[in-house]
Design a protein around this nucleic acid. Structure first.
Lengths: 146, 146
DNA sequence: TATAAAATGTTTGTATACAAATAATTTTTA
DNA sequence: TAAAAATTATTTGTATACAAACATTTTATA
């Protein structure tokens, strides 16, 4: 592990810095979730459904911030591994409702613990003020680009 | 465009926030580079080579923060579109040296302008203090995980 | 120096990302 | 209300990401 982060490379560009950070963190994140055989994206889907089981496909995609065409594949794999179930929406025949399985409901608390523990580890490395500013800028970047 | 960023979803997790921000920015970034038929990753490779033409494959991967097996594919496509060239390393028969083509050298200044212009746009949205803290945290996150 | 170990880049297989095209359905509108 | 437009999820095609296995070559070591 331990990717080098020397001064070389396009470090002056924000997009590069962001990309580098997110990949490092995601890699670590997924190493922790690997024992439960789920990916980070699958965790986001589960997390969204724990808050709102039976959500519409469209809303799930929006909340989990996953493209529709990407979500189709993720749900295929999650359905295959017995975590979720697609059901027809009785109100709209174009729409799908996504439900958690019992297995997914049971695994929830532990998975959330893993994620929260990691978050605490990350936050501990910084002052509360710095980290709050960091999160504020991050949220702005998610909203304000075009 | 304009992905919604509501309060729904796993917004409490740092990894999710980071992932959301980087994908929004990257999407915007690539829309600007699209007219030049290159991707963000390809831009990082070019940028690294503008600083150090003829770099070793291994060093290029490290500086551009791209996995070796991923870089192989990226270089395949860049070689196919006439941007770079692989040459044997005279000092080590396992190693490769990567060179820019004339075309890639010529396009450099304009591509860098596009990226720098976007960076300025992003920075303008924040106070200098906040953005410096943001970048500081980002760098730490790239270094300190594991 | 012969052999084990390490380094280098590629290949393979799986999992996102996302644009564009598509099929089915619903909503608008003329 | 019939035709046009919009919505929903999927499919297709291309481009990362990355772990694991691999072939080749170099370095270390016994």
């Amino acid at each position: 592990m331990k990717k080098e982060t020397n001064g070389c490379g396009p470090t002056e560009f924000v997009c590069f810095k962001l990309n580098r950070a997110v990949r490092n963190i995601k890699r670590y994140y997924e190493s922790k979730l690997a024992s439960h055989d789920i990916t980070a994206s699958q965790f986001y889907v589960l997390n969204t459904l724990w808050e709102n089981d039976g959500a519409k496909f469209k809303d799930l995609a929006k909340c989990a911030n996953i493209d529709g065409s990407t979500l189709t594949g993720i749900l295929d794999r999650m359905e295959h591994s017995g975590l979720v179930e697609r059901r027809d929406d009785p109100d709209d025949r174009r729409s799908l409702l996504i439900f958690l399985t019992e297995k997914a409901k049971k695994e929830g608390p532990e998975l959330i613990n893993i994620a929260k523990k990691f978050d605490r580890e990350v936050k501990e490395k910084f002052s509360r003020e710095d980290f709050e500013i960091f999160l504020k800028v991050l949220d702005q970047l998610s909203k304000q680009i075009e």
